[in-house]
């Protein structure tokens, strides 16, 4: 079976929502079991007392990336069919900075706040409520942001194209950087005083 299965027509579309639910369960379980339902555990990454976010995030990214590379190489999946988010330069950077601000105040990101809601964290419920308000505000004020939102479209650009690098070289460097960061994180964690949460 050559993936991606649904775009290739291997799995009928009617299964879409069932698959979504199952993958969501896996997503939610791995987030919660790793401790992403606790905002203070998440924030540990920024203060150096708990690097769980850094570890889980980068391990997940390089695992999935490695899987895609090998499946594509073996011909089990066509990586060029995968959806790539379009890169609107200014919009992505400004959006990222706003999200970073929200992260520092709220201590969650959308996915993790939903797992927090699932186990009864009231702060996560407020955060999730805020998400809806935020999306609503953005949509209502969209005419103001429209220019910025649509400027500098580079399409589904890949990072290695912009850097003028081969994809395999970038992937290898990313893995090396990730492992280096894991090592650094363990080193910093030893130095920083533990915070009870």
């Amino acid at each position: 079976m050559v993936g991606p299965l649904i775009p290739m027509g291997v799995i009928p579309e009617t299964w879409n929502n069932v698959i979504a639910l199952l993958l969501g369960v896996g997503f939610g379980f791995s987030l919660e079991a790793s401790g992403f339902s606790s905002s203070r555990k998440i924030m540990g990454t920024f203060f150096g007392y708990d690097f769980v976010v850094l570890r889980v995030f980068f391990t997940a990214a390089i695992t999935a990336m490695t899987g895609i590379f090998y499946f594509d190489y073996m011909g089990w999946m066509d990586a060029s069919m995968l959806y790539i988010n379009p890169y609107y330069v200014m919009s992505a950077i400004i959006g990222g900075i706003i999200m970073g601000f929200g992260f520092a105040l709220g201590g969650f990101c959308p996915g993790t706040s939903f797992t927090g809601v699932a186990i009864g964290k009231i702060d996560a419920m407020f955060f999730s409520g805020g998400l809806f308000i935020g999306v609503f505000i953005f949509s209502e004020l969209y005419p103001l942001f429209q220019g910025l939102y649509n400027s500098h479209n580079l399409g589904g650009a890949k990072i290695y194209e912009l850097l003028g690098m081969r994809d395999t070289v970038f992937a290898f460097l990313l893995i090396v950087v990730a492992v280096g960061m894991f090592y650094g994180a363990a080193f910093v964690e030893k130095k920083v005083t533990k915070v009870e949460y």
């Binding site: 490695t66 590379f69 090998y70 060029s80 994809d167 992937a171 893995i175």
Partner: peptide, 17 residues
């Protein structure tokens, strides 16, 4: 993981890229 990364490094380039 680094060994897997080295494996990626030796994958042939795709002309579509």
């Amino acid at each position: 993981i680094i060994a897997l990364g080295v494996g990626i490094l030796f994958m042939p380039a795709k002309d579509t890229a």
